[in-house]
């Protein structure tokens, strides 16, 4: 049985043009880096890290996950086309620090950790980052990029959030 990690590793290997993946469609954003295309901003290791933590933060459930929605490609586009040098450098620094933290928690290379070990590592790190004054790595910002990017994709907006283009009416009180 192929694990989620192995699927992701296959995806990561594809960066550089080795493989064109079609399973991650549904993203119309022309400035996103398409799955299977060379990353324009990230190094291979950075892209691998962003892909892994994106998948853990917003996994595939009954709806597409962050990787299905090409969040890593979206973020690669964001850093290439939107960010200035200061933001780019801060993002790179954050990714380095996040990797150090996650490697420590995984007792090895986080990217080689099993699915459960990787998840536990990120659960632990996320909790520490959201403790008061706990985030010194820039993780919250990276997580924000993941989340905002996901919900800006068609998958995230329509399938997960059920975003409606034309509500047509205002109901201020809808019981859940």
């Amino acid at each position: 049985m192929t694990t989620r990690r192995e699927v992701l590793q296959g995806l990561i290997v594809s960066i550089g043009g080795a493989t064109a993946l079609t399973a991650c469609g549904g993203v119309a954003n022309v400035l996103s880096t398409r799955p299977g295309s060379a990353a324009r901003f990230y190094t291979s290791e950075e892209y691998a890290l962003v892909t892994r933590i994106s998948d853990l933060i917003i996994p595939r459930t009954e709806t597409p996950g962050a990787v299905d929605a090409n969040v890593p490609g979206y973020m690669d586009g964001l850093m290439t086309d939107w960010a200035n040098n200061e933001t780019k450098n801060a993002h790179r620094t954050a990714l380095r620090q996040i990797k150090v933290e996650l490697d420590q928690r995984a007792s090895g290379n986080f990217l080689d950790a099993s699915d459960s070990a990787a998840e536990q590592s990120l659960v632990s790190f996320d909790a520490a980052a959201f403790a008061e004054d706990g985030d010194t790595s820039g993780y919250k910002r990276v997580k924000g990029y993941v989340s905002q990017s996901y919900f800006a994709t068609e998958d995230g907006a329509t399938e997960e959030l059920k975003w409606v283009a034309f509500p047509g009416r205002w109901d201020p009180s809808v019981e859940i």
């Binding site: 954003n29 400035l31 964001l78 939107w82 960010a83 800006a152 907006a157 975003w163």
Partner: peptide, 13 residues
């Protein structure tokens, strides 16, 4: 739609 505007519809810094 949100996904038709690149980069979260942000103007480049």
């Amino acid at each position: 739609a949100p996904w038709e505007s690149p980069n979260l519809d942000n103007v480049a810094q």
